[in-house]
Design a binder for these strands. Sequence first.
DNA 1: TACGTCAACATGGAAA
DNA 2: TTTCCATGTTGACGTA
Length: 267
Amino acid sequence: MLPSQISIAPSIHRSIDDRSAVWPIAMDDDRSDRLSLNLITSHDLSVSKVRPRPGAGGSLKFEKSDQSTTTTTIAEPSLTLGLPCSTDAGYAAGPSYSSSPPPRDHSMTPSLAGGHAKGEIVADEVEELLDGAGARKKLRLTKEQSALLEDKFKEHATLNPKQKEALAKQLKLRPRQVEVWFQNRRARTKTKKTEVELEFLKKWCGTLREENRRLRSELNELKSMQPPPPAMCPTCKKVDSSVSGGGHVAAAKYCYPFAHHSSAACT
DNA sequence: TACGTCAACATGGAAA
DNA sequence: TTTCCATGTTGACGTA
């Protein structure tokens, strides 16, 4: 639930109805290209991160989707934010927040891990502040939306900005959602392809194993055949050195008759 | 309640 | 520097 007015700091009150504002924030590490808040969307607002400055903070820009209003920047370099905290389960929404936020566990979000100096807020805390419930809402795409997305994906697995914008408009989604869907869809496709390839390789491996077993068996069979007597010249009693490779089988096949020397040379 | 799915997110790297 | 993508992860949600 979005309160009609959020108390950002004792001295700063900005009505959401302004529909456009830039709030400076402090972030430990800022790699994300953009940031979106579901709640804001439900109020016909979009949120983007403006000129993030890792370590030094950034700002959150709130705009109306039709961009009809101008952006207002709050001058303070950082904000003192009081987050709602009425229960152990999470933050409760309220008209203004004056209590301090409870310690939060950021262990699962490395980029946001670590303490924040007083007067600093991080993106997800802004999200929770605006959300009130403190929970990420799970959007489920409708069948129609999924079908259209699938159709478009069949046409091309990636979208250019224009296509993304058009598709988002058509689906009544934010372009970011379309983008995320395509990213996830590509990932799913790749996973599926990998699984298929794995199955193929498993079968191929089985075939090769069987072939290997058969060949080894055949080799053993041949090896077990009676070896021929040493290839020795019956006249000079020399072992025939012209026969390369040696081995019983080779000898049996190729050593007779003795061709390495003429009878004349055999002395 | 365990588990699978999937939208959303975080992050690093490549390309422009 | 910015944008896009691949990849791994998180957490909400549906279902057996």
